[in-house]
Structure formats: structure tokens, C-alpha cells
Design a protein around this nucleic acid. Structure first.
Lengths: 121, 121
DNA sequence: TACGTATTTAAGCAAATTCTTAAATAATAG
DNA sequence: CTATTATTTAAGAATTTGCTTAAATACGTA
């Protein structure tokens, strides 16, 4: 745990405390980074938003709404699913995806903010 | 605004409503994506968290805490600064960076969640 | 002025991302 | 079984990301 910053004003105790705090929360940072990196793409943020709003949608619906190819959407869905933030239900040939709301609860503030459409341009 | 999903059960009105909703909020999605893509990197999330906790830090401090090279940190800082989420103050040779809390308020829930360290491993 | 420190910038490279097109799976209907 | 529809998977290419090393800039001090 060596500290190398050589600034005269550097508060080495502060830096050590920061290191300890981050180390203690390392798993939390990794989990949160996984969610934020998934949500940090405009396409995927819209997919998450749509699933939050509509409960469930199939890849074809999402491709239509976002005006993108079905394989492109499917690959985004796969990424979100692999990360554990959505689940699927099959009805015949159609797969319906829905949000795991307990694992994405921290995005509620994000969705709320997005919905606050600016009145003044 | 044509809808092409050919599923028998497809609710074309629902899909049109979704398209309209997203279109109306397009700027909000872009702004939010900017913030989430910045925060969706473990290094940058830690930088934002540290600045939220410590008010201000210099690149050298952050490099020390995260055990990374100064140029690597500097380039992350530049990205966060270009996006408008931090500001800087110079004191001699040292640049202190601090969070624009009004522009990152939506991350408060993120920081709170990170701080809720799991008790049971 | 010259030197040391704090920081940024630039160049270069490996790895990751995100799309496209084409092929493979899965389920249903005739 | 064959054809059609819904979806996924794979391969490939263009772009972006994130580091490293080295050079440039900014400031303070002897």
C-alpha cells in the first residue's frame, strides 16, 4: 500500500483511506460497472427503457422501434442477457424479453430523468 | 413511421407509440448515454466516486489510489472533462479536479448502491 | 536562465465494440 | 417432409477504446 505522490501538500493518510475504501468495495464496483457499461450504449439504454415501459417485447418489435436490423438487436439482447439483466419467455416462435427489475433498480433514477423532457429548447 | 414486424400478435399501435416516445426523448437519451458511457468503465467510475467522496483530487493522487500511470489517468480525466462532468482548479503546478454535482446527480443512487457493501459473501 | 515537478498531449498498438451479411436453429403450418 | 417465420450465431470489417512510452507544456524555484 505504498503512496508515491510527492506533492508537498499531498495528504498521504487521505490517499491510503481512499485505497482502502475502494478495495473494500471492489466487487460492488465490478457489478456496477457491468450494469453501467451495458446501459452506456444508446441502443441498449433504449432497449432497457422500452422493456421497463412495456414489460416485455420480442427482438422483432425492438428492431422495428429502433429501426435497426434484427441480428444487431439480437446481439445487444444477448449481451444484456449474458449480464443477467433480462430474462426471456417463449411463446411459439416468439421470444419475449423482460427486465429483471430487481437487478436494474438503480436505473430507475435514469429512466425517470430521461422521461423529464426539457420544456425549453 | 412504417412498422414491419409481421407477427400475428404484434401490436402495431404499441410499436408506433414506442417509436414516438423515444423520438420525443431523443436528446435526453443522448445526454444520458454520454454520462453512462463515461461511468461505465471501472476506472472512470472509481474516479467519479472518489471525487464525489473527497470533493477534489489531483491526477497524481488518483493515479496513486488506483495504482495506474499518470498519463492513463490524465486521459480518463480528459474524457470526463470533455463530457462536462468535472471542472478543474489550479493551485501552483497542481490541478485539482472536482465533480459537477448538478450534472452527475443521477449517479447519486449509483454511489449509494456501491457503498452498500454486501454483508454476506 | 536552467532545472525539477505536475500534467497533458501525441503516437502507436492490442483488444474490444458494433455493425453487416450469410448460415444455422427452432418452432409452426401445410 | 417442406416451407415459412422468428431468432440466434458466426465471420469479417471498420471504428473505438485504453493502455504504454516519449515528448511537450506549464509552473515554481534556485
Amino acid at each position: 500500500m505504498e503512496i508515491s505522490c510527492t506533492r508537498a501538500q499531498a495528504d498521504h493518510q487521505q490517499l491510503l483511506n481512499c485505497k482502502n475504501t475502494l478495495e473494500r468495495m471492489d466487487d460492488n464496483f465490478q457489478d456496477m460497472t457491468k450494469l453501467l457499461s451495458i446501459a452506456g450504449s444508446e441502443v441498449r439504454l433504449k432497449i432497457l427503457f422500452l422493456l421497463n415501459m412495456e414489460d416485455e417485447l420480442c427482438p422483432c418489435d425492438i428492431a422495428d422501434i429502433l429501426e435497426m436490423s434484427v441480428p444487431a438487436i439480437s446481439q445487444h439482447i444477448r449481451k444484456i442477457k449474458d449480464a443477467g439483466f433480462i430474462s426471456s419467455r417463449r411463446d411459439g416462435q416468439t421470444l419475449y424479453y423482460s427486465l429483471m427489475k430487481d437487478k436494474t433498480a438503480v436505473l430507475d433514477a435514469v429512466f425517470t430523468t430521461i422521461k423529464m423532457v426539457k420544456k425549453i429548447a
